[in-house]
Write a protein that binds this DNA or RNA. Structure first.
Length: 510
RNA sequence: GAGCCGGUAGCUCAGCUGGUAGAGCAACGGACUUUUAAUCCGUAGGUCCUGGGUUCGACCCCCAGCCGGCUCACCA
């Protein structure tokens, strides 16, 4: 930081110096806390309702710690709130209780943002708030930079918190997430819910007999999705390596190895654009189960999401940005070509490539000149059908060229046994009956190679080792990938992926 | 990558037709021993995102750039 401190920072440094001059340690080593703020309040209230409080109305002494988040001085007394992991509790500093020295020190030295520990007896103020009368206090950490606190107003009738002029600048909130979290408790709640969602997913899979595994994030070849990778270099091996874009091919190798059901919740990395649905690193759940096909996966996915939604929001319905979404099974199921045919009011199979391109152009889709037929179908689908898929819907049976790792449909030529789950017009999961014919897999990879040679940087590479694994024998297997961040967005009602990722990728600050 | 919007005090924001920057909160000093957006009196605080240009004069107009948001493009 700069050598010239702003006056506001200098004032705090001066307090720090004064504390040290008085041999008061501004950065303590520990604090013996007896209870959290919430526990202290509950203990007082239960004593109160049991009629167990002494004459003076004060409960048993509590030792609580936290960050000073508000301060209202009244001369020879002061009210403050501290906040800990459980919430806020009011403190009452009183000169004749603390003594002149301790009281004056608090007035002189304490700032919003400081961490303190206090010991004192809880009581109920005239206005009814459970409050700790501070008998002793101790500075735990001096804050040298003011946190961007707003003023919190609690509506007396509804009990709702209204924050006035808080910390709102999106850029600063993402860059300084620590400050965002420190002053916006509802942001902390989002990430608690995120942890709950991941925990629930994990438990559901464990309960269903899946084995949690870890596969390489650093890979010699990347695959399992169509995306540009991050490329890095291993010095000792002197070779290029890639950050994974998906776990898929490794997880299926494990099914070859004899595990019947595996899953992984991991970061994937894709070297692509950033917007409110995409962060370059994101969390993906993938699971694979022997003997299942994509119908089994759909049934399981419905149950999995129902369980998570029930655990997190307590029901089957959520409100997302003003839209009600129901996760009640069964989800809608539509077939890719049929849905597209309805939207086009014509059977896509009977339309020529030129017809399809003309339709795309009519919709304002550009750059369709070099795209192959499946690609055009995909674009048309994205434009015409996807936005309407608000309630959870499985889109089934995609064109084979779009799905190099999926098994051909058992009766319908030209398509594969695949589904994508759409919610609120966005893709949440992608799954298929896994292609387990190594000869077919090789020719699919080779078709990808042609796309690659034609300049498609996202086309698959040929993974010889993966084909070798398939040659040993992959049992019939169903596999699914789900974007965990997007699920968290839905269940926490956040419109941007950056609001469910603690430290989203941003450009350099300078 | 394109379009639109934004960047002014620590925070939230205002700033007219171009005339030399303001409020609330926070800070600092003072009053106040049950307040809670505490209140009252006073004080201080600015690289107006950066760099050019136009002008007697630029927070304001023009050009270029940086950063962020949204939309589009991209994206299994």
């Amino acid at each position: 930081m700069s050598d010239e401190l702003s006056p506001i920072l200098r004032a705090r440094r001066e307090k720090l110096d004064k504390l040290r001059e008085r041999d008061l340690e501004p950065f303590a080593y520990r604090f013996e806390r007896s209870q959290t703020s919430a526990a202290a309040r509950e203990a007082f209230e239960s004593a109160e309702s049991a009629g167990a409080l002494p004459e003076d109305g004060h409960g048993a002494v509590a030792r609580v710690g936290g960050r000073v988040v508000s301060w209202r001085g009244h001369g020879k007394s002061a009210f403050a709130h501290i906040e800990d992991g459980d919430g806020r509790i009011q403190l009452y500093f009183k000169k004749n209780v603390l003594g002149d020295e301790s009281f004056d020190l608090a007035l002189e030295m304490l700032d919003l943002g400081d961490w303190i520990g206090v010991a004192g007896a809880p009581f109920r103020t005239r206005t009814g708030e459970v409050t700790v009368r501070v008998d002793e206090w101790q500075l735990l950490t001096k804050s040298l930079r003011p946190l961007p606190f707003g003023k919190v107003e609690v509506d007396a009738e509804t009990g709702e918190r209204v924050v006035h002029s808080g910390f709102a600048d999106t850029e600063s909130r993402y860059r300084q997430r620590y400050a965002d979290l420190a002053v916006n408790p509802e942001v902390r709640d989002v990430f608690r819910t995120r942890a709950q969602i991941v925990r629930e997913l994990r438990q559901a899979l464990d309960d269903a007999g899946f084995l949690e595994v870890e596969t390489p994030a650093l890979q010699p070849l990347y695959g399992g999705a169509a995306a540009r990778p991050f490329v890095t270099h291993h010095h000792a091996l002197d070779r290029e390596m890639y950050l994974r874009i998906a776990d898929e091919l490794y997880l299926k190798r494990l099914i070859v190895g004899g595990y019947e059901a595996v899953y992984e919740i991991a970061k994937d990395f894709r070297n692509e654009g950033i917007d409110r649905f995409h962060n370059p690193e994101f969390t993906m759940l993938e699971f694979y189960r022997a003997y299942w096909d994509y119908h089994d996966l759909m049934d399981f996915t419905e149950a999995l999401l129902a369980r998570v939604v029930a655990a997190v929001v307590g029901g089957s319905r959520i409100d997302f940005q003003g839209t009600e979404i129901s996760f009640e099974a069964p989800f809608g199921r539509i077939r890719f070509m049929e849905a597209l045919g309805e939207a086009l009011e014509a059977d896509p199979a009977t339309l020529s490539d030129d017809d399809l391109r003309a339709r795309a152009r009519a919709l304002g889709i550009e750059d369709m000149g070099t795209a192959g037929r499946p690609r055009v179908l995909d674009k048309l689908f994205g434009e015409l059908v996807e936005p309407g898929l608000v309630q959870p819907t499985f889109v089934m049976d995609h064109p084979i060229e779009l799905s190099p790792l999926a098994k051909p449909h058992r009766t319908d030529p030209g398509v594969v046994e695949r589904f994508e789950l759409y919610v609120n017009g966005a893709e949440l999961a992608n799954a298929f009956s896994e292609l387990n014919d190594p000869l077919d897999q090789r020719s699919r990879f080779e078709a990808q190679t042609e796309l690659r040679d034609a300049g498609d940087v996202e086309a698959h590479q040929v993974d010889e080792d993966y084909i070798r694994a398939l040659e040993y024998g992959l049992p019939p297997t169903g596999g699914l990938g789900m974007g965990v961040d997007r699920l968290v967005m839905l269940l926490t009602d956040q419109a941007s992926i950056r609001d469910v990722i603690l430290f989203p990728v941003l450009r350099a600050e300078e």
